[in-house]
Design a protein around this nucleic acid. Structure first.
Lengths: 251, 251
DNA sequence: ACGCTAACCTAGTGACCACTAGGAAAGTAT
DNA sequence: ATACTTTCCTAGTGGTCACTAGGTTAGCGT
């Protein structure tokens, strides 16, 4: 314990502000935050807390007051590090998406057989999710409620997609999954992949007792096994001559 | 249910009656709403408008004022039909999930070969999405930001899941996809299925030029083709003797 | 015509939230 | 100690939102 506190001596004229309170009760108001950090360290603390809160409550549900509280500061300090809530959100997205992009680029490329590269990528991807649960849950949230937020999310996520998608396009036979490897077809492959991985990641975060190996195996069984057979030309065909009649939904 | 009274079309020339004012500027305040409806009709109008707004902005982003405005009323009237925003949301969820449940129950059951039943169900499911775009986009939104809303969503969606999942459990070989057909395994199958269908549905709503047949084919190629092979025992196996070393992610 | 019910409105209320002005204190250099 | 910078605070501001109290009017039955 360092110096008692420097405010000894003169009695406070107006308000009796004591610095070393036994911070029982409310941790925000009762305890004066005399834990001063360097700017960089505090900024990291904000990033960590904000990832947590955004993961738990989504963009709209996360309050800057709550983020500040979990960072050990009051709201004004937050705005000395980030211009706005949206600016903070964007910088988190960029950081975490960059991490995941590296996971793909570092594992999917190479000369190994496709199945091995896919399995390796999935495993590395779920490893990242395992080690950064809040990051995963934050990234995969639906943000389309607020157009401005959705634009930021689409922009950052789109940059990752643009970096990763070409890896798949070179897979021979990939065009058979969704009709083509360019434009809509490739986009649909991406949608399916993302749907499965994100769905499993969110489910896994609520069922952590399941091993990563099992989650990866489920993803492989769902995606790769089917895709591989489609690559070889065994794709599903609609039953001939049975268009509308059979496929109509009941009233 | 398509009695769409376009209450606010372009006014023909000018104000002829006492009712249609030249509502320049604020459309809510200028026009006295003397279009009185029966309670049931107004309630339907609210349901329609609320589905739209929840689909566009999510639960938190949807304002009751906006829902009221699109229903042609002011907020107090809304509360004569529903107890609260959450009550309104719950009743929409129940209605639309019940519709989708019927799609599954009406198409997946029967004596046809599994592939045909799956394809028929997918087609019927996407048909429903096609005809009720707002319903689809509303149901598949992430609502976990607000615990109270998440609880309602989980409750209603869980009822649908409980009705549909047993249909899959009887599929021979289904346990091989995720390790078992009970508990976690079956849940993971559900997660994968939901991830693919919902992902494709949301993507499709932004890319309506793609035919339903193509979307269904992508879903079949992604899910059924792979699953079928797994059913037959061809599931993916981790490369032997290559656990952590190969699968480690890069720094 | 006249009263009654139900649909609808105006005009709020209090709570919450993103964000800020201005000042105090902690650390650092002199 | 004194001057200076940086970190952090108190105490707000204006705006939005879910929801409501109490009054008005349309339309129907008699």
């Amino acid at each position: 314990m360092s110096t008692e506190e420097s405010s000894s001596g003169e009695g406070p004229a107006k308000a009796g502000r004591q610095e070393d309170r036994p911070r029982k009760g409310d941790p925000r108001k009762g305890a004066p935050r005399r834990t001063r950090m360097s700017g960089a360290a505090r900024r990291e603390e904000i990033v960590r807390a904000a990832t947590e809160v955004f993961a738990e409550r989504g963009y709209q549900g996360a309050s800057t007051d709550e983020i500040a509280r979990r960072s050990g500061i009051t709201p004004p300090v937050l705005y000395e590090h980030f211009d706005s809530k949206l600016d903070l959100y964007r910088s988190l997205l960029e950081r975490h998406f960059a991490d995941l992009r590296q996971v793909w680029l570092g594992n999917f490329t190479g000369e190994d057989p496709p199945q091995l590269r896919v399995a390796r990528s999935f495993d590395a991807w779920f490893s990242y999710i395992e080690e950064h649960p809040f990051a995963g849950r934050m990234l995969f949230r639906d943000t389309s409620g607020d157009p401005e937020v959705a634009a930021v999310h689409d922009e950052v996520a789109g940059a990752s997609r643009a970096a990763i998608l070409p890896l798949f396009a070179t897979q021979p036979g990939a065009e058979k999954v969704a009709g083509s490897v360019s434009g809509e077809g490739l986009e649909m492959v991406w949608v399916v992949l993302r749907g499965v991985l994100q769905g499993l990641a969110i489910w896994w975060s609520k069922n952590p007792q399941v091993s990563r190996e099992r989650v990866v195996a489920t993803a492989m069984n769902s995606l790769w096994i089917g895709f591989e057979r489609v690559f070889e030309g065994e794709g599903w065909q609609p039953p001939p001559g049975s268009g509308a009649a059979q496929l109509d939904q009941p009233g």
